[in-house]
Write a protein that binds this DNA or RNA. Structure first.
Lengths: 195, 195
DNA sequence: GTCTATACAAAGATAGAC
DNA sequence: GTCTATCTTTGTATAGAC
């Protein structure tokens, strides 16, 4: 994570809108015109803040990724939390997305079109995924060590399953419109962790 | 499902290529030019077989959906199979996709860009999803009734979790490139079914 | 920083010859 | 059925005025 200088208000608004558009429609299905319509400035003006669509996409992923990573680090550092508490913190954003119509995790959305993404974005999405998996594996291992969790597969297998299940649940929930999808999945995952 | 007449070879080849392109790049990120390049006919000629891109997309989904539905019906009708056998049959295509680089389930791919899809396609993707969920719920219920399965959530919750986990696993596997993702998830799901 | 104007490429689609 | 040619729209991007 390189240290980025402070950004202008307009640049931040562009990032907000772009993030929302990617989460709802995907990277390849949104245009500068869409941002222009919502922000009220001409699409050419967007290029003043972000030289290219690729640069904008990269900035969106980096901002999102940095915020998420920071939050996860804070959760992990809190020694007063049980492993299950940490897992509950982790699922918080997923529950929020599930309650927001048509919205999925940014990187889940981008993962769906990973091969149609500029390489600069692809690398960052991959790195973000791997960060999630590594974090979950550490939390799972912690729960096992403390005697909170008990299951019959490896920690890595459990972490992967949980991550995939949560990402998949967002996908399914948006398509079927069934908001109970997410809470069902979390319930099953928690039952699974405790054996 | 309306009864479609037999299609020409070229039309079938177009469908094959379009299906592959949607599975790897997504609907909005492929063009008639991509098909033209691979098939060796000019892009205008594609319009002879499919009037519009929407019509082509619909045809791809319907063919895929019909094939999948038929296969699932056959599995379900086979009384000699245990519920776990049926689940193993169900996961077959997922395991295949997981072993094919860069390929995911067609409808998982389309689900990622559902809001950026023509309505005609959206409806069909939604229906296909609901068919999967209903089928899984029936198989799960069957396993419970026969004493094969045992778990602490409802049949519907279990079916949703399994479907989401499998779709999510394909997504994660493609992004991380880790082919063991799918077998890990299936292993966990099976452990979960048997309590 | 935002505007108008414009360049340039690619997309989906149609018309008509062969 | 496939071709060439063309139309129209949309997309990303740049130049230069304000």
């Amino acid at each position: 994570m390189s240290a980025k200088g402070p950004r202008s208000n307009t640049a931040e608004e562009i990032l907000d809108i772009a993030e929302m558009l990617i989460q709802t429609r995907g990277y390849n299905a949104f245009s500068f015109q869409d941002i222009s319509d919502r922000l009220g400035i001409r699409k050419a003006s967007i290029h003043y803040h972000f030289a290219s669509k690729t640069a904008l996409g990269v900035a969106v992923v980096e901002r999102y990724s940095a915020g998420f990573t920071e939050a996860l680090q804070a959760v992990e550092a809190d020694e007063t939390k049980s492993a299950m508490d940490m897992f509950d913190c982790y699922t918080g954003p997923y529950r929020e997305f599930a309650d927001t119509p048509d919205r999925v995790c940014l990187c889940g959305a981008l993962a769906g079109e990973i091969l149609a993404l500029p390489v600069e974005m692809r690398e960052r999405v991959e790195a973000f995924f791997k960060m999630h998996l590594a974090w979950l594996k550490r939390i799972v291992a912690r729960g096992v060590k403390r005697g909170e969790f008990e299951f019959s597969v490896t920690n890595g297998q459990m972490a992967r399953t949980m991550f995939g299940a949560l990402q998949g649940a967002l996908l399914v929930k948006r398509t079927t419109g069934d908001s109970s999808q997410m809470s069902d999945v979390i319930k099953v995952l928690k039952a699974q962790l405790t054996g």
